[in-house]
Design a protein around this nucleic acid. Structure first.
Ligand SMILES: [Mn+2]
Ligand SMILES: [Mn+2]
Ligand SMILES: [Mn+2]
Ligand SMILES: [Mn+2]
Lengths: 273, 273
DNA sequence: TTGTAAATTTAGGTATGGCTAAATATTTAT
DNA sequence: ATAAATATTTAGCCATACCTAAATTTACAA
């Protein structure tokens, strides 16, 4: 039997924890081998509750993707959809899903050829990572003067590596903000998050007063254009009746009338004023 | 021929960069497979200068360890020493050294059975990571109210994952500090760092006035004790003549006379007052 | 209902970075 | 100078996570 990878009651010992102990004394437990860093060492010391399995960056990204793609109705997500979203080949997705589904307890429930959905544990972990992401974006923007088109990439990486302690400090420093710089709701520490019934601006009825609730944070160039044109969360607007072809005419409060491409309008979410 | 892992002129494309592009369009380059995240995507776009090879967290840690263990005289470092410092088996170290030494350009120079030392490129990268570490410690301490015994572990992880942009922002926010919370000198952006001739307090001559220049940041409990007893960088002290057994008697300015264990005294570095 | 196209999985490989046990080389002590 | 002790390397494995090409399902359309 090679390898003693698990500490007393099922807790995974991250390599880093040992390494930074600088010379693991005597016959200490050796962490599981392998290249991937296991995130979020949780020891809970005496309180031996099962807790969640440790995750890696890759696993975190799968969980987030499943959460996003399953939508509010919590549909099953297909391998192909995941592959597309993650920029990974479908065959690789299958491999990961099988491995995750085989874990106990598991983050996901997976049926061959019929997609995957998150267990409560999986949802919880996904929300935690999303909380990290949005808090980081808010922090980078408000405290470190990142512009709103720069925060996403940095947060996308760091979200997997900050400790719960740092998460708490950031939240405290910011006064427990509700939304990130793009208007996305920051989940509570316990994983809860309010849901808003948002509509894509491209599909919003003409003539009905709207307020921008959030915008997609994925494309920096689009974000810069939005900022330049006053399309920020909280901005009021009305879509001019008639025009709904390649672009739509929009009246943005405090700005001159403008025409938005479908492209841009599809990256903006609104709610009733 | 399987795998297209390298972009046009030898630049490594990190998986994350593609993934966050959210669906890599058409026949885009696919990143090299594997679990380890490659840090610090540098594209330099048109300016096709060779630059440094991309690193992983593991490689960064090896480079830092080699730098630390080789000391100011830049001695060769043995596999065993590295293994001990990194909490890794010697056989694993050999494997890594051989791989690194085989790269072009290489971070290290390695001769079988005769240890390893850093090339200029390796030194440069190690200094960069150390700059990240110390800036992060200063930032966590000053801006996010971490105590000085909490900063090390968090910085040890994040040092590998912050971008150059975030590094710059942190430095700017702090006003380009010279030292971290433990008194360690923060290298310049270009990799340069002043060297101080420090002496371990345990070996400092009795009766000679000294100032604490820095303390080891590895052991949180020791740090808490130091703080409690006024043993902070900048504090003046004199070792009482005579006593130099298991503990030594010390007069710390502004504090009552105290006895320090050799253990603690070995974690404190001093310079002439 | 059956055939075909699309989606998904299997099979076989790569890279990173650990580990153990068994060689081998270097050092140190006689 | 040589033998024993110590240090280091080799050989063979494991886990994570991704890829391509070749099955295999499933879904849809005639
Ligand atoms: Mn991510
Ligand atoms: Mn956002
Ligand atoms: Mn590290
Ligand atoms: Mn420090």
């Amino acid at each position: 039997m090679a390898m003693l990878s698990v500490a007393p009651a099922g807790y995974v010992v991250s390599r880093h924890a040992l390494a930074s102990a600088n010379k693991c004394h005597s016959g200490a437990f050796r962490p599981t081998a392998g290249a991937a860093r296991i995130l979020h060492l949780r020891l809970d010391s005496v309180t031996a509750k099962p807790s969640e399995p440790a995750t890696t960056e890759a696993v975190d990204d799968y969980l987030k993707a499943i959460l996003e793609l399953s939508g509010p109705e919590e549909n099953r997500v297909t391998s192909n959809a995941l592959a597309g979203h993650l920029g990974i080949r479908p065959a690789s997705v299958t491999g990961m899903l099988q491995k995750l589904a085989g874990q106990r307890p598991s983050f996901i429930r997976y049926k061959k050829h019929h997609g995957v959905f998150l267990t409560d544990t999986g949802k919880h972990r996904a929300m935690e990572v999303i909380r990290h992401h949005r808090l980081l974006e808010r922090f980078l923007h408000d405290v470190l003067d990142f512009s709103w088109d720069e925060v996403h990439d940095e947060a996308e990486r760091l979200e997997h590596y900050i400790s719960e302690h740092l998460e708490d400090r950031i939240a405290a420093k910011l006064g427990d903000p509700d939304v990130d710089p793009h208007g996305h709701i920051i989940p509570e520490k316990n994983g809860a998050a309010a849901v808003r019934a948002e509509t894509v601006l491209a599909k919003w009825p003409c003539g009905v007063p709207a307020v921008i609730s959030s915008v997609s944070d994925k494309d920096p160039a689009a974000l810069r254009e939005m900022k330049r044109r006053g399309l920020l969360p909280g901005a009021s607007l009305i879509v001019e009746p008639g025009t709904r072809s390649a672009s739509l005419a929009v009246r943005i409060s405090g700005n001159p009338p403008a025409r938005l491409s479908q492209e841009l309008a599809s990256r903006i979410l609104v709610v009733h004023r």
